[in-house]
Every structure is written in structure tokens, then in C-alpha cells.
Nucleic acid binder design. Structure first.
Lengths: 348, 348
DNA sequence: ATTAGCACTCACCGAACAAGAGTGCTAACA
DNA sequence: TGTTAGCACTCTTGTTCGGTGAGTGCTAAT
């Protein structure tokens, strides 16, 4: 039994109809709606074959057919038509996304906003993972008698600052010295390595007050470094889940929302995905908690190097054609936008 | 008809029973469970009175009684017993909250985490509103040829930095000069006023490159200032809503989640509440979208001055006694913790 | 190979019904 | 006069049951 032309056509019709209607589809409706010159009975025979081949399932004896993961896979890989964004859509994306590329974080956040707006799904954007990032310098800045700001700047441009309340007063001289010593020691070192380096405190012997200062600042310095290694997750459109019929069940909605609210774990899953446009459907997902979802992610580049991610998560029944087009358009624009200095133009 | 002792006792029993069970309570059950030496019939008479007085309602003829907003109000003001935190509870709060007060933002985030954990509700924490905050200095730091970090430090210690991608290269000399000019112009000015001040650009006439630099940086400077004036909202435990029977209805859960996800609006509502422990119940809330909820907020102080907020939101049927105790304990600890420098000890 | 016909299967819907919890009222009681 | 027992009544909740409709699988005819 092989997948002849007609079977493909039927499968295509079933998948795309189900994606829009969320209702199992029967032979009669199919024949009527897609008038393909064959009778319901014939379609039934073909559908039975397709079911045997694993492309369709029955929710129960005698309801219409529903596509399986395998069917979605085939649909995504071979069957679906490319969705072309209209000029208005492109215009809208570009105007919201590209007008102020200067502020990186905001741009990324806007990307997530746009994506959920266009797809009516839950969207997310991740800042780049900067494993190789190196420390550029450290600044300790005065605020008031017992408060300083610890500022760490990495070569990538990532900055982190932490307001630190000290147990006792400090002198400007001491914090400047400490900044310099720390910068001297860690400049050019990979952020991820610094924790494992021995903490150099040769000033400790010199001045007792400096030692106390360092005692407060160093632990916070390390935890701030950890923060810098984390990518940031921007989520948007989580409540869109409520307008999806599959999630009319309170229990399912709960599971979904708990999943995306486990930000740490969720981020980890996203970070570990490959580059490029990646679609994983239903039980193709290795994570137990997203076996009922499909996940589409794509990567954007900054100066052709570092990669961040952009994507959506929703039910397996999603508009793969439109979504991939939108995501691709957005990541392409981001990548070129962030490559004004002239990064390489390699492409898969 | 007046609220005699017995009526109060009955009301008290109804409210506290309903808070735990979420079920309308009838005269028989009440008499059995709280064996107060009066028969169901008598209780029925009293309940009828209480209903007439507006303290109770009937969901329908012949189901038990349910407390009204007015009843909760009375309960909260006069009837409820003070909940004393156990030593373990206190210990747990203090250890999670007070171990690293140095990192302000993290501490506030932990406060929200703790609060939702203790109350099984949706909790939130707000950083202080710093309307009077003044600019301390501005720093523009180099990252790479076309990227700088714009850093703004306020007198309160609040820091904001934005990674800015410039359209063309800059020189260190120019960004240093621009930092100085900007600091000179805006130092000591209230953040909220700076936008309305005329933007001083006397350097523009001098050097053309400086003008271009300023053109990119100034708009971002202003929008960053706006960000600094906003308070940050830390939300936690939003999915707790799913374990509350009242929200087993998908429609209600949706409305609730959309409400708290409107972060801007939600924050605004919270910011505008009075200081101290404030409880608003059901339709006491002026905001249409939280008429079915109760909201408890309390304020913490930093050096006795600036105030941030901490609170929970949930169904009107919440454990007011425990929640207020927990919140109060937390804000008290935060306030004293943040007052190490020795702020005034005024109290309401 | 295709199709008409037919018996069969389920989910879904609404009606009917019983059970249970609770009320309001009346009349008796202390 | 306040309290209580008794009782009829109300309304929700859960269950059962039959009808309806969409859809299937199989068989026999085309």
C-alpha cells in the first residue's frame, strides 16, 4: 500500500481542514467540501488505508478522522503551501520591529509581542546565549553611604548591575581600588570560567576595610555573573490559550500554563534546540510535558554570530504555514537589522 | 433589629466556615458543627434576619447561606481572630527573605515567591515608586565600535542601563564628553521633570559628530528615564488560581489571568492604593475587573521613606486572618531590614 | 476500481426522575 | 416571648434513558 497522489490529496485536505476547524472530519463532508470527484465511500476506503499507515486516528468508532503526528510531519515537510505575507503584514512587522533597533532588549520584547499577535498563540523570545562571553570590566559605583552599584560589562555588550547594600560605610577610594583589582583579575576571562578561578584577594592583607568590602561584594559578584550567563525569556500571549478549543478543559489549560510558567525549565528546553527553523510536533517533543503541543522556534543572529531564539508554542493543530512564514520573516529582519556592522552572510 | 451577640457568633461561624469549605452553609450543618446550643430552626430565624440586614445571601431559594461583601468586611474588621505565625513559619520567612538583603531586586522577588507559597494565591511585589527621585549621574560606556551602554544612576540607587547600537562609530572622547554634558545638565533634577526640560545641546554647534551621537542617544535616554519611573512588578503563583473552586469555570479563570497579565494596568491599580495594610473586598474594589476578587496589600519602607508594596489577590473567600499576618510579618521584616542605616521609626 | 446501500456505533442532548440539602412557615412549648 | 419540632416546598445535582445525527465498515452491485 503506497501513498499515491490521491491519498496525499485527501490527507492534505484533512490536515488543513482540521487545522482550521478543530473538528474531526468525515468522508461525506470531505467529499462535499473539497469536491474532488470521488464519492464518500471511496474516501472512506482511502481513509482506512491512511489510518492503517498511521496518518490518521479515530477518536472513537465512528467519528471523523483526526491527523496523527505523522500526518502533521508529512504536511509540514511536503504538503503545505507556502504562506506569503501580505504587504500590510510585512509593513506592520517591520514598523514595530525595526524602528528602534538601538534598544536591543525592547526590540526582542516587541518581537515576542508581535508574534503572539500574529499567531494568536503563546510566543516567546530568548536573548542570545553567550557562553563564550568574556568580561570587559567591572565598575563599583557609589549611591549613598552604604549602598553601591556593582556593574559588570561583558564584551558582547551585555551589562548587569546590582544594587548592593553594604553592612558598613565605604570610601570612594576603596571601591575604586576594588573595581580596578577585580577588572585586572578577570578582564578577558570567560564569564562561565570566573566562578572556578581562585578568587584573588591580595589586597586583603593590606587593608582590613578592603577585606570587609570584598566579603560582601564578591559573593554577589558571582551570583550576578550567573545571572549574566542566563538568557532572558520574554513570554507573551499566554492567555491566548483560552481561545483554543482543545484547551477548554480546565485541567489542560492548567497544565499548559504551569508549563510555560516554569520559566527556568521552559527556557532550558528552548535553549537546547537546534538553530534554524525547527518544528517539533506532539510526541516528537522529548519533554513529557509538551507531548500534546507543537513547538516552532527559529534563530536570529547578531553580527552573524550569537544566536537568540523566537518561537511559539500551542496545540499540534496550528497554522504551520503562516506561523513559519511569520517567524522566518521576523528572524530574517532581526538578523539583518542586527548586522549593520556587516556580519557574514552565511545561510543554510 | 440589631446585631446581638448571637447573631455575630453565627455570622462569624458562617464566614469562617465558608472561607474554608467554599460551600454555602445551612442551619443544620451550622448547628451540628459549631454546637452552639441552639437549634437549626433558631439559626434559620437569625439567618433570615442577617440576610435582611445584608450580611448573607442565598445563591437560590434553599441552598445554604453565603457571606456578602458586608459580612466579610465585618469579619475582617471585628470578628476574625488574629493568626499567629508559628515559629517554623517565621523562621522560614526570615531565612528566605533576610539572608541576602544586599541584592534588593532579588529580595523583593523572593518576597513575592514566599507570599504565594504561604497563601496559595497569586501574589505580587512592587518596587518603590520613586516620584521624587533625582538624577545622580549619567555614564556612557563603550562596548564595541558601534555599541555603547547608556547608564543612568539615580540618587535612590536605582540604576538603569540600555545597550544602544549606534548608526556609526564614535570616539571615546565624544561619549565621555556627552556623558559629562548630560550629567552636568541633569544632575539633581527630578527624573520626572527631565523630559519637560529643554534639551540642552550647546555642543551641537561645535562638533558635527557629537550632534549625530546625541541624536541617537537622547531619545533613548528619555525613554530609559520613563522606564526608571515605572515600578517593577513581580508576580508569582498565578497558576494557583486553578486550585480554587470558584475558578473551576474556564471563563472566570480566563478573566482572572487576563487581568493579572495586563501588567501595566494592574500595576497602576496597585500603586494607587494607600499605605499600610489595605484590604478591599469584592465590590469594594473600584476596578470593574476585580469586583469578584479581594485584594490585600501592604507597604514596606526603605529607610523609612520610599514605599513599595506586597500583596495577594484572590477570591473574596480567602483566609484573611492568615494572609494579613503573613504579609504584615513580611513587610515588617523588610522595612527593618532595609533600615539598617537607621531610618526613623514612625509607625501608624 | 468505484460506489450505493445498509446496519451499526457513539457522542450529544434533553427529559424525566430520585435524592439530598436547605428553607420558610406554623403551631406547640417552656 | 423566645425557641423549637414538624412539614411542605424549592431547587440543585446526579442518573438514566431514548432519540438524533454524524460517521464508519462491510457487502454487493456497477
Amino acid at each position: 500500500m503506497d501513498l499515491n497522489e490521491r491519498k496525499l490529496k485527501i490527507l492534505q485536505a484533512i490536515v488543513s481542514d482540521f487545522i482550521h476547524s478543530a473538528e474531526p472530519i468525515g468522508s461525506r463532508t470531505l467529499s462535499r467540501k473539497y469536491g474532488m470527484g470521488i464519492s464518500p465511500a471511496t474516501i472512506r476506503n482511502e481513509m482506512a488505508d491512511l489510518e492503517e499507515m498511521g496518518f490518521l486516528t479515530h477518536p472513537y468508532t465512528s467519528a471523523g478522522r483526526v491527523p496523527s503526528t505523522k500526518a502533521y510531519r508529512l504536511y509540514v515537510d511536503d504538503l503545505m503551501h507556502r504562506y506569503e505575507l501580505s504587504d500590510e503584514e510585512k509593513q506592520k512587522i517591520r514598523s514595530k520591529l525595526m524602528t528602534n533597533l538601538a534598544e536591543f532588549d525592547k526590540t526582542i520584547e516587541h518581537a515576542a509581542n508581535l508574534l503572539s499577535e500574529f499567531t494568536n498563540l503563546t510566543s516567546f523570545a530568548l536573548t542570545p546565549k553567550q557562553e563564550e562571553d568574556k568580561l570587559k570590566y567591572i565598575n563599583i559605583l557609589p549611591v549613598d553611604e552604604t549602598t553601591v552599584v556593582l556593574m559588570i560589562v561583558a564584551e558582547s555588550g551585555k551589562v548587569s548591575n546590582t544594587v548592593l547594600k553594604l553592612k558598613s560605610a565605604y570610601t570612594e577610594e576603596h571601591i575604586n581600588l576594588l573595581s580596578k583589582v577585580m577588572t585586572y583579575n578577570y578582564k578577558g576571562k570567560k564569564l562561565s570560567d570566573i566562578r572556578t578561578l581562585e578568587i584573588i584577594r591580595n589586597f586583603e592583607t593590606d587593608i582590613e576595610a578592603m577585606g570587609r568590602l570584598a566579603d560582601t561584594i564578591l559573593p554577589n559578584f558571582l551570583s550576578t555573573l550567573d545571572d549574566m550567563l542566563n538568557v532572558d525569556l520574554y513570554l507573551d500571549g499566554v492567555t491566548n490559550i483560552f481561545s483554543i478549543p482543545e484547551y477548554n478543559d480546565i485541567e489542560k489549560a492548567k497544565v499548559f500554563l504551569e508549563m510555560v510558567n516554569q520559566k527556568k525549565h521552559f527556557t532550558e528546553v528552548l535553549v537546547n534546540r537546534d538553530s534554524g527553523v525547527i518544528i517539533t510536533i506532539g510526541d516528537e517533543n522529548t519533554e513529557e510535558f509538551m507531548r500534546e503541543c507543537s513547538l516552532i522556534t527559529a534563530t536570529y543572529r547578531i553580527n552573524g554570530k550569537l544566536v537568540g531564539k523566537l518561537g511559539v508554542i500551542g496545540p499540534t493543530r496550528m497554522k504551520y504555514d503562516k506561523i513559519t512564514s511569520v517567524i522566518e520573516y521576523m528572524t530574517d529582519n532581526l538578523s539583518t537589522g542586527f548586522a549593520l556592522t556587516g556580519g557574514e552572510e552565511d545561510e543554510h
